[in-house]
Design a protein around this nucleic acid. Structure first.
Length: 271
DNA sequence: ACGAAGCCCTGCAAGC
DNA sequence: TGCTTGCAGGGCTTCG
């Protein structure tokens, strides 16, 4: 499931091969994603040159002279660069064929992702306008979560995963960051001290930065790979380790469900 | 206005 | 073996 590190890794992986390239054609095989992929995409992108690539939260933005292509990988999506003669697989929904003969291929088995065309300032688009700060940016300082949480009575894990609070913290890394900072996932957001929030924000930054760093090591395989090169194995301390001993105290990790999400924690270390 | 629940979708694993 | 069932989950949308 692509979280922010996977999206960042994807961005870094495709950028050198896509930047300044001119689109030759666009192939739409399946337009039924989270929202319909615009049928006009082939016409909109034809002969246009990529002028920039960026990321906002988990949204990838590919800038063209007349607008932005916005791509979200959902939870099973991936982008890969393939040779034009590589036959499309079952869930290869969209191809962007460049004149340099490389193809940017979007694959998404569960189709929770999205490909949209934005005109004008992309950050004014409803999906981007109300997003919280980047967790690895300057605005996400040690005080940020404390200030944002004062009137929030929901569970801290739900608070942390709210993209209006901070972007890019998905289920896996929310579990990990809360474990690393010793905070119980069900604790109410407004019942946590500034000092503990400072530690939590540090954990969030650490966990995400480490994952991005690991993703970077797989970049050399990005082109011509199976499209899975953007994924990497992270040393996870709690996620997927229910019942196994806590790395800190040895007590068995417990699991609960919060907002339909698997939540793993150490009942002894997290309070 | 806030917080919780619902929903979209397919692949995989477990159970019978 | 082959079916059915349940689960995984980002994040927008709807409901209370």
């Amino acid at each position: 499931m692509p979280e922010l590190p996977e999206v960042e890794t994807t961005l870094r992986g495709i950028r050198p091969h896509v930047l300044k390239q001119r689109v030759q054609s666009v192939v739409l095989r399946q337009t039924s994603l989270r929202w319909p992929v615009p049928e006009a995409l082939p016409r909109l992108l034809a002969q246009q040159e990529v002028v920039a690539l960026s990321r906002r939260g988990k949204y990838l933005l590919i800038a063209f002279p007349h607008g932005h292509l916005m791509i979200h990988l959902g939870m099973s999506g991936s982008l890969s660069l393939v040779e034009p003669d590589l036959p499309a697989g079952k869930h290869d929904h969209v191809d962007i064929v460049f004149q340099g003969a490389k193809v940017l291929r979007y694959n998404d088995p569960r189709r929770f992702g999205a490909i949209l065309w934005l005109e004008g300032d992309p950050f004014e688009h409803a999906l981007l306008a109300n997003l919280g700060p980047e967790p690895l940016g300057e605005a996400f300082d040690d005080d940020f979560l404390y200030r944002a949480s004062r009137k929030k009575s929901l569970a801290v894990k739900s608070f942390l995963m709210d993209s209006k609070v901070v972007v890019g913290v998905g289920n896996i890394y929310a579990n990990e960051a809360l474990y690393c900072s010793g905070i119980h996932p069900l604790r109410k957001a407004n019942r946590i001290s500034a000092a503990r929030y400072a530690r939590l924000s540090c954990s969030v930054r650490q966990v995400l930065a480490a994952a991005i760093e690991q993703g970077g090591t797989t970049l050399r395989d990005f082109v011509g790979g199976d499209g899975k090169a953007g994924y990497f194995k992270q040393e996870l301390q709690v996620y997927g380790r229910t019942g196994l001993p806590c790395c800190g105290c040895g007590h068995p990790l417990k699991e609960l469900r919060l907002a339909q999400r698997s939540t793993v924690y150490c009942p002894r270390c997290q309070t």
